[in-house]
Design a protein around this nucleic acid. Sequence first.
DNA 1: GTTGAAACAGGTTCCCC
DNA 2: GGGGAACCTGTTTCAAC
Lengths: 152, 152
Amino acid sequence: MVFDDIDKKLLEYLQSDSKQTNKELSNKLNLSVTAVYERIKKLEKDGFINKYVALVNKDRVDNAFVAFCHIKLIQHTQDYVMKFEKEVTNLTEVLECYHISGDYDYLLKVIVKDMAAFREFVVKKLTSINHIGSTHSMFVINEVKHTTAISF
Amino acid sequence: MVFDDIDKKLLEYLQSDSKQTNKELSNKLNLSVTAVYERIKKLEKDGFINKYVALVNKDRVDNAFVAFCHIKLIQHTQDYVMKFEKEVTNLTEVLECYHISGDYDYLLKVIVKDMAAFREFVVKKLTSINHIGSTHSMFVINEVKHTTAISF
DNA sequence: GTTGAAACAGGTTCCCC
DNA sequence: GGGGAACCTGTTTCAAC
């Protein structure tokens, strides 16, 4: 597929504000509205754009406590790994989960109400998943930067 | 401000798909289109909704290499901290930056082309910021889960 | 908060180059 | 592939309840 510099620009614009009209985008890209429309549809169809979402302001949400959890599994058989990943994915408190290199196997980003809720989450939900060896938690003191936009 | 269970539901819907029509939302919430419209405008005005964005599929982007970097500062004077945070925020490779508890001061989520580009990033950009003591990097082997939607 | 209608803007389609 | 005009769907505003 063709994926040129205009598409990259377009993706950057849509990543920063998806509510722009095609007319606004056509001005920025020096294209016609139709061309913008067709390029966007193409990017959606070809899976470059996953979805369009509203981003919620964490500061306005009461008691948004964010933590990162390192997790080590006891064993790494395919069974254990797949089961762990499936169960972790189902936890609404887990916003992100990465299989990573290093001392630990996984890094989780978790959001809960407060420290008490975090303790509850670790004890009741996280460590109740079998095969977890050890965990190590870090608490977010301040969110310095957070963007969903990838630069091209 | 009133922020009831309907608003929470509405935010959850908009976080999962912001392109739904007000009519679709009105069906899900058992409200009129006008009521949905007014609630959304209120949530936007009151800052609950930061913005609307397109989420790009990392798998379709050539060579999206993601790493997490722990960073320790040499000193923690207000000057150093603010300068570091400002410079890190300006790096397009840095998607997220958190001031965290624990052995390190900061946790960064970085996206670059490949391992070579990561090395380049660390040597040329990251450690050229003054006052950085030590860094420790972890590489993402697989993204198991990634959502921007907070549950209420 | 609801309904309905009217006005408008934007998305979508089609035909042209 | 891009441009222009017609069409159509959704948003926005307003009235009355």
